[in-house]
């Protein structure tokens, strides 16, 4: 029974952390944007503007809730809910750190250690399209519909290359699909990024596309589609869409850290294990993972304020004609090297 309580507490904490990080990502986004443009950014609410997300949240809640009369009411409400649910569900298979020891029992810091962990993430991400599509269609607005169609075709296209690049990772980490096993196979500085730079490049480009982040933010490109799929949304329903996007960013940063940068591993972890108590090492490993995650969140923002948006045909060409063949070749080469040189 204690395992259930532990898991429930863990899920609760992960939800809180996801939402908190999403909230502070909005603040970080504005701060990073400002700093990269030689500005200061929000600094009025609280010290250094740290209460800005709170102010934004209150503003979101107090805005008028508008459901267009020509829209399909139920689907209009369902859209943001689905998007949020799928965004939060992805965090279930990520190993957040070394096991904790509470009352003589060992608890894994992972909600579910599925043996298909990475496929689970791909599956849930592929379901995330529905939130956008339904929201865009039910708004009964041509810009929303165009945004939704762009979002879905973009996500489907980049999912393929993403899956193919993951196959290479699975090949070099003993053929296991479980995220725990993939992380465990990267002890020390034995990170996958050093063995699979091409897969990393493909994966991170696809992650940008899946999160609808610049340079691939065509579904909501404000200069052509007003707000894209959330043009008609207001109040907290819009808030859910924006929030879920930041959660997606957080989760994809976590997945990138786990797949390519060793997750909670760092050089010297084994040594620390022998000298420090288990729980302290566990906390340190969690901290290390979060440092990596924060770096990638920063990287997402850094890219956003550096590279301009792609044109839609360029996006499709990059996905299908460059990343897709490249990832297949990568898998072939990895397989060949493993077969002939790694006996």
């Amino acid at each position: 029974m204690t395992i259930f309580i532990f898991k429930a507490v863990l899920i609760f904490i992960i939800f809180l952390i996801s939402l908190g990080i999403a909230a502070y990502s909005t603040y970080a986004e504005r701060k990073v944007a400002a700093f990269l443009q030689d500005r200061i950014g929000p600094d009025r609410a609280g010290p250094f503007g740290l209460l800005q997300p709170l102010a934004d949240g209150v503003k979101m809640f107090l805005k008028e809730e508008i459901i267009p009369t020509v829209s399909d009411k139920w689907l209009f409400i369902l859209g943001p809910c689905l998007f949020m649910v799928t965004a939060l569900m992805t965090s279930a298979v990520i190993p957040w750190g070394m096991p904790l020891e509470i009352g003589g029992k060992i608890y894994k810091l992972q909600v579910a250690d599925l043996n298909i962990g990475i496929l689970y993430i791909l599956g849930v991400v592929s379901l995330g399209v529905y939130g956008i599509m339904i929201g865009g269609w039910s708004s009964n607005n041509k810009f929303a519909l165009l945004g939704a169609i762009r979002a879905s075709s973009q996500m489907i296209s980049y999912e393929l290359a993403m899956g193919m690049s993951v196959i290479a990772i699975i090949l070099i980490s003993n053929g296991s699909l479980s995220l725990t096993a993939i992380v465990e196979s990267q002890k020390g500085l034995n990170w996958n990024v050093f063995y699979q730079p091409v897969a990393f490049l493909i994966f991170i480009i696809c992650a940008f596309a899946e999160c609808n982040r610049t340079p691939f933010d065509l579904p909501e490109s404000e200069s052509e589609l007003i707000g894209g799929y959330h043009t008609e949304y207001s109040s907290m329903k819009l808030g859910l869409y924006l929030f879920a996007e930041y959660i997606n960013m957080f989760i994809s940063s976590a997945v990138i850290s786990c797949l390519f940068f060793g997750g909670y591993n760092f050089p010297g972890l084994d040594y620390l294990n022998t000298v420090l108590p288990v729980n302290l090492v566990s906390l340190i490993s969690i901290g290390i993972l979060f440092v990596k995650i924060f770096f990638f969140i920063f990287f997402f923002m850094w890219i956003r304020w550096t590279i301009p948006r792609f044109r839609y045909d360029q996006l499709m060409r990059l996905g299908w004609q460059i990343l897709m063949p490249l990832s297949i070749i990568n898998v072939l080469v990895t397989g060949a090297v493993l077969t002939f040189f790694n006996k």
Partner: peptide
Amino acid sequence: AIFQGLSITIKHLFKKKVSLR
């Protein structure tokens, strides 16, 4: 080109800010 762009933007992160409060 992308890395060049990234290096330009990261340099601005440490520059003196021109805004006045």
